[in-house]
Every structure is written in C-alpha cells, then in structure tokens.
C-alpha cells in the first residue's frame, strides 16, 4: 500500500469547520452534509474541509486531541509504557500533516504540534521495530497489533512480510520431506 492511499483513507475522517457561507443540506453517497450557516460549526469529512479552506470558505476547528498539552501527555505515556498506547485518532499522523499543511493558521501552536506528533511517531516506530525483532527471534507464529495505526503498519509491512516468508521457508527445512519436489508455477 502506498502512503498516499493511506492518506486518502484518512480524508474520510470527520472534522469540525465553521463556514462563512450558507448552503442547504447536500446529499452525497457517503451521507448527508450540512446545512451550512455562517458561524455555525458543522461536521464534514477532511477532504471537503480542506477544499473549502483552500477556497477560503471556512475556518477549520482542530480536533480535540490536536492540542499541545494533550499531545505532551500522550508522548510521556508513550515513552513510559512498553506496549503501544491508544492513539487519539487512528489517522493521527495523516490528519496532522493534512491539517497543518493546509490550515496551519487555524491551529494554535502549529509548529509545536508538528514536533510533538513526530516525537510520538518516532517513539512508536522504535517500539514497532523492537517488537518485530522479538517476534522474529522468539519465532512466534502470531502477534496482536493493538493500537497500531495503518500508516505505522504500512511502513514496515513489505519488509516484515518478506522476512517472515524467508523465515518460514528456512524453518520448514527443519522438517524433512515437507516441501520436496514442490514447484511454484509462474
């Protein structure tokens, strides 16, 4: 999976905006949006929010978790715990990037938030690598990936799958006669 595809999925997340125009309810396949009234907050998907923002038709209200104090708390917790802690949003990395890139004027302390999210990301990726290593070295057969987000899994997916494939084949060497004379067709 490409990171831009993950980003595409993240754009379906809802975010609150304050429009400065008025429009009736609009009916889309994914659900009804609106009605839009100037000054009244309304929930829309991120893709629409960014589009409206680029045309200067709205102000984006940052999600609750996108706040320096809350993120600092999460960062400390993430550093303290050995296991993965719950993240505020399954698309925290993508949303931070999208919202900060397009609407940094609506989000207070944008730079600090960017650094904090990057810190959280780095901590989690380091943990992910550690757990992948112990997964391989203990020759486990399955692992539970609680609280991992799609983007995090995505960065290590191809490497981990290929390694597990190799390990499986090397391990099946241990059992004599298991795959002798077996051919794969191409």
């Amino acid at each position: 999976m490409d990171p831009s595809e993950v980003e595409f999925l993240a754009e379906k997340e809802m975010v609150k905006i304050i429009p400065n125009f008025s429009l009736d309810k609009i009916y889309l396949i994914g659900g009804d949006l609106g009605p839009f009234n100037p000054g009244l907050p309304v929930d829309v998907p991120v893709w629409l929010a960014l589009n409206l923002k680029q045309r200067q038709k709205c102000r984006i209200v940052p999600p609750e978790w996108m706040d320096v104090e809350k993120l600092e708390e999460i960062r400390e917790l993430e550093r303290k715990e050995d296991a993965f802690t719950a993240v505020p949003s399954p698309y925290y990395m993508e949303l931070t990037k999208l919202l900060l890139n397009h609407a940094s004027d609506n989000i207070p302390k944008a730079d600090e938030i960017r650094t904090l999210v990057k810190d959280i990301w780095d901590t989690r990726i380091a943990k992910l690598r550690c757990s992948a290593d112990s997964f391989i070295s203990q020759q486990e057969a399955h692992a539970q990936l609680d609280n991992l987000t799609l983007m995090e899994i995505n960065t290590i997916r191809s490497f981990l799958l290929d390694s597990l494939n190799c390990m499986y084949k090397l391990r099946s060497n241990l059992l004599p006669g298991s795959n002798k004379g077996q051919f794969t067709d191409y």
């Binding site: 990726i125 690598r129 992948a132 290593d133 391989i136 070295s137 020759q139 960065t155 290590i156 490497f159 390694s163 190799c166 390990m167 090397l170 391990r171 060497n173 241990l174």
Partner: peptide, 21 residues
Amino acid sequence: IAQTLLQTFIGRFRRTMDSSQ
C-alpha cells in the same frame, strides 16, 4: 545445518531491519 541457517537468519535480522529502516 538447517538449524544453523535459521538461527543465523534470526540473529542477523535485527541489523538488517535497523539499517534498512
């Protein structure tokens, strides 16, 4: 031999992973 191959792969895995990532 089979056991050594597997153990070698496992032992070197961490380094391959860290350097590639």
